[in-house]
Design a protein around this nucleic acid. Structure first.
Lengths: 105, 105
DNA sequence: ATGGTATTTCCATGAAGATCGAAACAGCAG
DNA sequence: CTGCTGTTTCGATCTTCATGGAAATACCAT
C-alpha cells in the first residue's frame, strides 16, 4: 500500500464524526445502512453527513449501492484489514518489542 | 478506549509527513531515534518536525527521553496495538464477514 | 407529467492545520 | 562564563477542513 493511501484512510478516520459514522457502519455489518438511517441515528445535518460519507467512500473505506431511492452504505472490511495490516506490518521490522497479533488476542 | 482518543491518534497518523515520521520510528525499534537523526533522514525543517513530533507525543503514539543534548524518540508499540485492537474490535460486532486476524495472517 | 422522499451539490463561514525562518532555550565542553 | 549543538517556541502565511442552509438532482409512485 502506498503511504499516501494509508495516510488518506487514517485521516478519514481521524475525525470524531467520521469515525462514529464508520463505526456505525461496521457494526451494521454486511447489510449496511441507508444514508437516511445514519442521519436519524447520528442526528447530523444531511449535507454534513453527505460530505463525510463521500470522504469515506473516496478512500475506499465505505462502499455504496443504490436501492431504489435510498443509498445503502457499507463498511469495506477488506480495506480496513488492509490498513490494519499496513500498520502492523511496519511494526517488528527491526525489533522484537512488538507483537500485534498476540496483543490483539 | 474513548472514541476521541482513537480519533486523535488516527488523525495524528493521517498526514503523510507524520506517518512517515512514525513509520521511521517504528522501524527504528526499541532504540529509538534522535530528533536530529530524523531530521537528516527525512529532510524537513526543524520547526516543522518538532511540531509533528509533538503531536505524536500528545496522542501517546510516541514517547521521548532525554539523553544529554539529544532527545530520543520512540514509537509506543502498546498504543499502536491498542489502536489496532480498537479498530478490529468494532469489526465483527454484528456480522461474520470480517476476520482481521485471519486476513492479517 | 406531478409530486414526494432521499441524497447531493453549491456556497459561505469560522476554525484549524501545515509549513518554515528566525529567535529563544537547554545542556554540555572548554 | 562563553561558545556550540540540538531542539523548541514565536510569528506569520497559506491552505484545508467542518459545518449547515438552500437549492438542485435522483428515483419511484401515481
Amino acid at each position: 500500500m502506498k503511504i499516501e493511501t494509508a495516510a488518506a484512510q487514517l485521516e478519514a478516520l481521524g475525525n470524531t464524526t467520521r469515525l462514529t459514522i464508520y463505526r456505525t457502519l461496521v457494526r451494521a455489518g454486511e447489510g449496511g445502512l441507508a444514508v437516511g438511517k445514519l442521519q436519524l441515528k447520528l442526528d447530523i445535518a444531511g449535507s454534513t453527513l453527505s460530505h463525510h460519507i463521500r470522504k469515506l467512500v473516496e478512500v475506499d473505506l465505505v462502499s455504496q449501492e443504490r436501492q431504489a431511492t435510498t443509498l445503502i452504505c457499507r463498511a469495506n472490511y477488506a480495506s480496513m484489514n488492509g490498513l490494519i495490516g499496513y500498520l502492523a506490518d511496519e511494526c517488528c521490522a527491526d525489533t522484537s518489542g512488538c507483537a500485534p497479533s498476540d496483543a490483539a488476542a
